[in-house]
Simulated scan of single mutants.
Amino acid sequence: MQVSFTVLGEPKGKARPRFVKGHAMTPKDTANYETLVHMEYLSQCGDKKFSDDAMLDMRIKAYYSIPKSASKKKKAAMAMGMIRPTKKPDMDNVVKVIADSLNQVAYKDDTQIVDCQCRKFYSESPRVEVRIKEII
């Protein structure tokens, strides 16, 4: 089985938990983005869920906005993929927020992901494209 879906908007990363009176709290921005990923998965992939013992391969393409301040030449190079983002959020935090959002939705737990790739690009339409497939 394989599923693919897209989350429109600027890529976000998993923020560090905040501690309030000794309790860890997920920042509101992160919780909202996790909910968005969760809802986009359900709307685009329906109730498809991988089996609890499936080994999974996750591929993520994160498309960041092209800065308005960039020159025309630089914007063209960014759009063609010749210049790629070296800015936050870090790709490991992008993977973490996507993988955590899909726990109990696309799969039982993100520990089932045994192979993962995250690539960063610039685009006029910022988004995150996710593909998950079972390794057989």
Score class of each variant (00 low, 15 high):
Val3Ile: 15
Val3His: 01
Ser4Leu: 10
Ser4Phe: 11
Ser4Glu: 15
Phe5Trp: 06
Phe5Gln: 07
Thr6Asn: 11
Val7Glu: 02
Leu8Ser: 11
Leu8Cys: 01
Leu8Asn: 08
Glu10Asn: 13
Pro11Thr: 02
Pro11Gly: 03
Lys12Ile: 02
Lys12Phe: 04
Gly13Trp: 07
Lys14Leu: 12
Ala15Asn: 09
Arg16Val: 04
Arg16Thr: 07
Pro17Gln: 09
Arg18Val: 08
Lys21Trp: 13
Gly22Asp: 06
Ala24Ser: 10
Asp29Tyr: 01
Asp29Glu: 15
Asp29Val: 13
Asp29Lys: 12
Asp29Cys: 04
Asp29Trp: 00
Thr30Leu: 02
Thr30Ile: 02
Asn32Tyr: 07
Asn32Met: 08
Glu34Cys: 12
Val37Cys: 00
Met39Phe: 08
Met39Arg: 14
Glu40Met: 14
Ser43Phe: 04
Gln44Val: 01
Lys49Glu: 15
Phe50Ile: 12
Phe50Pro: 13
Asp52Thr: 13
Ala54Cys: 07
Met55Leu: 10
Leu56Trp: 03
Leu56Arg: 05
Asp57Phe: 10
Met58Ser: 05
Arg59Met: 08
Arg59Tyr: 08
Tyr63Arg: 08
Tyr64His: 14
Lys68Pro: 00
Ser69Met: 11
Ser69Cys: 10
Ala70Phe: 06
Ala70Asn: 02
Ala70Arg: 07
Ser71Ile: 00
Ser71Phe: 01
Lys72Tyr: 12
Lys72Leu: 14
Ala76Phe: 02
Ala77Gln: 11
Ala77Ile: 00
Ala77Tyr: 05
Met78Trp: 04
Met78Ala: 03
Met78Asp: 06
Ala79Tyr: 07
Pro89His: 08
Asp90Lys: 13
Asp92Gly: 03
Asn93Lys: 13
Asn93Asp: 13
Val94Gly: 02
Lys96Ser: 15
Val97Ile: 15
Ile98Leu: 12
Asp100Leu: 15
Leu102Ile: 10
Leu102Val: 10
Gln104Asn: 12
Ala106Pro: 07
Ala106Val: 11
Tyr107Thr: 04
Lys108Ile: 09
Lys108Asp: 08
Asp109Ser: 11
Asp109Thr: 09
Asp110Thr: 01
Asp110Met: 13
Thr111Asn: 09
Gln112Lys: 11
Val114His: 10
Gln117Arg: 08
Gln117Trp: 00
Phe121Asp: 07
Tyr122Glu: 05
Glu124His: 14
Glu124Thr: 15
Glu124Ile: 05
Ser125Trp: 00
Ser125Leu: 03
Glu129Tyr: 09
Val130Tyr: 03
Arg131Leu: 09
Ile132Gln: 03
Ile132Met: 10
Ile132Arg: 04
Lys133Ala: 00
Lys133Cys: 06
Glu134Met: 11
Glu134Val: 10
Glu134Trp: 05
